[in-house]
Amino acid sequence: MTRKEFNICVDKYSDGVYRFILKNIRDEEKARDIIQDSFEKLWINVDKIDFEKTKSYLYSTAYHRMIDIIRKEKRKLDFDNVKKIDYSHDEQYSDLSELLNEAIMRLNEKQRSVIMLRDYEGYSYKEISDITGLNESQVKVYIFRARIFLKNYIGSIEAVV
């Protein structure tokens, strides 16, 4: 991959990868760091990676970097990080996307990542499998469970509203 192609990748993919990471961890600074690291790694391996495969390489690098960060933080905040998988309805939601944003944060990181890759980027199960290192069956299961959870979450909120 040439320098020019690398810069094209920056223009084409940095927004998507940034969005994917930011939606996952909801921390702009960390998301930016992850993007910097990912493109830095891409540049280091620029001679080994085909231009056509850079997108999935970037997503994969960013995903694994993000998982590393989440795990480190989990260790730090072991007790504070207990997610409430209940259906409390204290929040007021103005629209469905807001409701969904709230719902996806209640998914575990793997479910959240695979469903985002599926919906945001339209990746196939195989591609998601390559990016995340999960096998295709696991990807399907995670997506299925995520859909069920989101559907139940939305349904329960709508029932209340």
């Binding site: 940095s14 990868v17 969005r19 910097q36 540049w43 969904l100 996806i104 985002m116």
Partner: peptide, 22 residues
């Protein structure tokens, strides 16, 4: 179920692209 399909928020962009370019 159809409502669970996520939509990318295109307003979110990586602003400092020049820092990534070589």
């Amino acid at each position: 179920f159809l409502k669970t399909r996520l939509q990318a928020d295109l307003d979110i962009t990586f602003t400092n692209k020049s820092s990534l370019k070589r």
